[in-house]
Simulated assay, not measured.
Amino acid sequence: MRGLFGNDWNWIVAGLVSAALLVGLSTLTHFPFLISAAISVLVFAGLIFVLAPRALFEGLDLSTLSGSRVAFARELLAQAQPAADRLAAAASSIADKDMKAKVKNLSDIAADVISKVEAKPESAPSVRRFLTYYVPQAAEVAEGYATLANRRAPSQQRLGNVGTVITKLQDAFVHYSDSLADSELGTLDVDLRLIQESLKEDIGR
């Protein structure tokens, strides 16, 4: 049943809050225990839903989209999201400001691409390699850098090598982000040409 309404985290938080509320109501305000318990149960149930993670494609009208495309996008995002979360966590654990900023930039681009694919599932094929390869690999490399940097005597050569890869990954991330933006433009160039031809016919310029 827990899997239907989120992950462990929302249940733990809801349990702690409702338990604290029960203790507070019954001891500090001297509410009858049964009333305090009933209020706590209602708060617990409400928090389960409020804190539950948002489902993929929530709010999107899936009836207008191809089922196979949605399934494909869902599969890609299910692989990419945990890696993107790891990438964000790695960024927060890196002390070096320059490297932290670079990893944070990778994390921001990954989150942006994932958000755009969720909003437009049919764009998933254009960033398949990005989601299934580059995001997980970037998380792996960023975590490796954080682990190396936290050693008492880290190898500067190894840190430099990892840092070089992270810098190059930024180029790959920007490339795929831009390619997704290009795919969203669709037939813009054709539309512009047709509009220009129509304007020339109608107003002579």
Rank of each mutant, 00 (worst) to 15 (best):
R158M: 14
A172L: 13
I109T: 07
L47H: 02
I12K: 10
M99G: 03
Q156D: 13
R152C: 01
A142G: 08
D108G: 00
L62Q: 15
Q170P: 00
F31N: 02
A84I: 08
P82A: 04
L192F: 11
A119K: 14
F57D: 05
S68V: 07
L131V: 11
A73E: 10
T64M: 07
I203G: 01
D85H: 09
G59A: 09
L192Y: 03
T64V: 05
T167F: 11
V13Q: 03
T27I: 01
S63F: 11
A78V: 06
E58Y: 13
D108C: 00
W11L: 04
L194A: 14
A181D: 11
S63C: 01
S93F: 00
L106E: 07
M99E: 10
V135L: 01
V141E: 06
A78H: 03
A19C: 09
S36M: 03
K97W: 00
D108F: 05
Y176D: 15
A101P: 00
S177T: 02
F130V: 10
Q81E: 12
A181K: 09
L194V: 11
R54F: 00
E118C: 08
L56S: 06
A101V: 02
I48Q: 04
Y134C: 05
V23D: 03
I166A: 07
V127N: 11
A172F: 07
A20K: 03
A88E: 12
P154E: 04
L194Y: 04
V162H: 04
R69D: 13
Y133F: 10
S107D: 13
L199R: 15
P82R: 09
G204N: 10
S107L: 04
A101C: 00
A110V: 13
S155L: 11
S179W: 13
T164C: 03
A110H: 14
V162G: 04
V13M: 15
T167C: 01
L4F: 14
F5R: 07
A83N: 12
A89I: 00
K200Q: 11
L28G: 14
D171R: 13
A45S: 13
A83Y: 09
D182G: 01
P32W: 06
G204D: 11
G59T: 11
I166K: 01
G6N: 09
N161G: 15
R151I: 11
Q196Y: 10
L185M: 14
A110D: 05
V174M: 05
A139S: 08
I35Y: 14
G67F: 02
F44G: 01
V117S: 08
V23P: 03
R129H: 07
G3W: 03
N161Y: 11
L87F: 04
S155W: 09
K104Y: 09
T167I: 05
R69V: 05
A153V: 03
L77V: 12
S155V: 13
L28I: 08
L51G: 02
A90D: 02
D108M: 10
A153E: 06
V13E: 04
F57G: 02
L21K: 04
A110Y: 14
